[in-house]
Design a protein around this nucleic acid. Sequence first.
DNA 1: GTCTCATATCAAAAATATTTGATGTATTCA
DNA 2: TGAATACATCAAATATTTTTGATATGAGAC
Lengths: 105, 105
Amino acid sequence: MESFEDDAKIFKALCDPKRLAILAQLREGEKCACVLQEPMDLTQSGLSYHMRILCESGIVESRQKGKWTHYRLSEEGGRVTVERLLAILTPDARKGKRLSCCCRK
Amino acid sequence: MESFEDDAKIFKALCDPKRLAILAQLREGEKCACVLQEPMDLTQSGLSYHMRILCESGIVESRQKGKWTHYRLSEEGGRVTVERLLAILTPDARKGKRLSCCCRK
DNA sequence: GTCTCATATCAAAAATATTTGATGTATTCA
DNA sequence: TGAATACATCAAATATTTTTGATATGAGAC
């Protein structure tokens, strides 16, 4: 079972507008860091910081080729992310659910 | 079209372990604030802060009943959240995609 | 009406995340 | 080999989020 911290880390990757803008670029296909940085309001080290968060969440994968780093959406990472989201948001069907009663006292 | 900020706000609700723990409680069904707070390491105002973020994201709905506030997962909010996640993570199938070439210079 | 309870809101403090600029490390190219 | 390029990493500055404690609001009980 995933911990709340592990799940939080996945969704942390998605909660920043700049990272979402980066992901939007990656939907078009694999891109290297310099191409990703070009249209964005980010320094080189700023981009590197965000790419690390995206990669550590599992949502993005990277590949070295010579002096370039190429980034792409991870199929597996996306699958896990959707799976975790559904697990978090799907009501529990178990019997004997506690009611919303506040009159315990 | 959703803005990156709007989407970020949705996922911001999911990127904190305490909020994920609250959502886990709500999977069991509707609960009032005092019931939610009981098992958590949160002050009353701390819970209220997190509930606001969850409600503003659309993922949770609230209902007043006398002096109690009852919270529950929003079916519509969940649907929108999954939809946005898929939109963000699904590769773009458009023709003419830019390649990952770094050799522009 | 007054009292208590459940919750929201506010401002200050504390914690965490992001940005920035400098520096380090490979790698390519001359 | 030495210079330039692409990127990562680090520490300090800045910005944002979360926590805390005090106070406000509104409902029900008395």
